Simulated scan of single mutants.
Amino acid sequence: MSTTNKMKVEIWSDIMCPWCYIGKRRFEAAMAQFPDAGAVEIEWHSFQLDPTIQSGHGDNLYAYLSKRKGIPYEQAEQMNNQVTALAGSLGLTYNLDQAVVANSFDAHRLIQLAKKHQLGDAAEERLFRAYFTEGKDFSDPATLVALGKEIGLEESVLQELVSGQAYAAEVRQDIAEAEALGVRGVPFFVFDRKYGVSGAQAAETFLEVLNKSVGEWKKTQPSGLEIVEGQTCGPDGDC
């Protein structure tokens, strides 16, 4: 729950989703142009595109997508080449031929832990880069511990995370909430629980929704006391 008087933007995302990383960059571009960015609080939520993935199956990303979507291997490769080029135009490096296809559930548990330490955005960013650029296996406990340490989490806390099932309930709650909201794909952005934006939209679209939602949110906020002046004594002794 937010402890600050800010309007919340909630983002449902899966770290193995190429459009989620692109959407993050485009939303950040909108925030950089938004004059009231300081009035916005961002919260990341977990979502799994494929909770049935068995880690260590050996398929590369193209083979996995070919089987899952029922398309030729070459078509899967072409699709990913296109999204790689788009990502590159935003300064992102996608090495999808090196991507390790694995179940993202434990990585989402890491994100939930990071959120408790106000490091949710840092965790998302680091995990995206680990998957899309560095070809790291985010189902490997040692990898998760190393990535968590990089963003500032303590090793003892991380070791406890990977050796148990802490924050699993929070991941499942996020997924259930997405279903209740009608989320069918990610990224999915929710502004003040009033407006939803599906997909990695252009920065201009995000900026438009930010202006609208924050403008409406501000109208609902207390503007301070309306004071009727009268005779008073001040700290300087004037009465």
Rank of each mutant, 00 (worst) to 15 (best):
A200Y: 04
C17Q: 04
R129Q: 09
K136S: 00
D14L: 06
Q78E: 13
T232N: 12
K212E: 01
L65R: 11
M79E: 10
L113W: 02
A29H: 07
V228H: 14
S198M: 15
H108P: 02
G230F: 14
Q201Y: 10
L161P: 06
I227Q: 07
G70Y: 06
I175P: 06
A176T: 14
S223Q: 15
L225P: 11
E43R: 09
A146S: 13
A29G: 03
L86V: 14
I175W: 10
E170Q: 12
A37E: 05
A130E: 00
S163A: 15
T205Q: 13
G234N: 14
E43A: 05
E160K: 15
K69F: 03
F105L: 09
F27Y: 12
W217H: 10
T3Q: 14
L49A: 04
D14K: 03
I151H: 04
A37M: 02
D106F: 06
K149L: 04
H45P: 05
T143W: 01
A202R: 13
V214M: 03
D174G: 04
A85G: 04
Q98A: 13
V190D: 05
L96D: 10
A29V: 06
A123R: 01
S198E: 14
G182F: 12
R26A: 07
F128V: 00
T84L: 01
S55I: 04
W19A: 01
G56Y: 01
Q54E: 13
N211K: 12
E155Y: 05
V228S: 15
G152M: 06
Y21A: 04
G199T: 11
L225Y: 14
Y195T: 11
K8N: 03
D59S: 10
T93S: 09
W12Q: 04
C233F: 11
P141Q: 03
N80Q: 02
W12C: 04
E177S: 13
D238G: 14
Q173Y: 05
F138D: 00
N60P: 02
F191W: 01
D140H: 07
Y195M: 11
A39G: 04
Y131V: 05
T220K: 00
V83S: 06
V197K: 08
A178Y: 10
R25W: 03
D14H: 07
G215T: 04
Y62K: 03
L86E: 13
G152D: 02
R184A: 13
E204S: 15
Y94T: 09
I42C: 00
G135W: 03
I11A: 02
E150M: 09
A63W: 02
F34E: 11
F34D: 08
A169T: 08
I151V: 08
G38Q: 00
M31C: 08
P51I: 04
S223T: 15
I15K: 01
E77A: 14
G224W: 09
F105I: 06
F34R: 12
L210Q: 12
L49N: 05
C239G: 12
W44H: 06
E229T: 15
L127H: 01
S13C: 10
Q221P: 02
Q221M: 14
T232E: 15
S156M: 03
D238N: 15
Q33N: 13
R26V: 12
K67Y: 01
W217G: 11
K116H: 12
F189Y: 14
R184D: 12
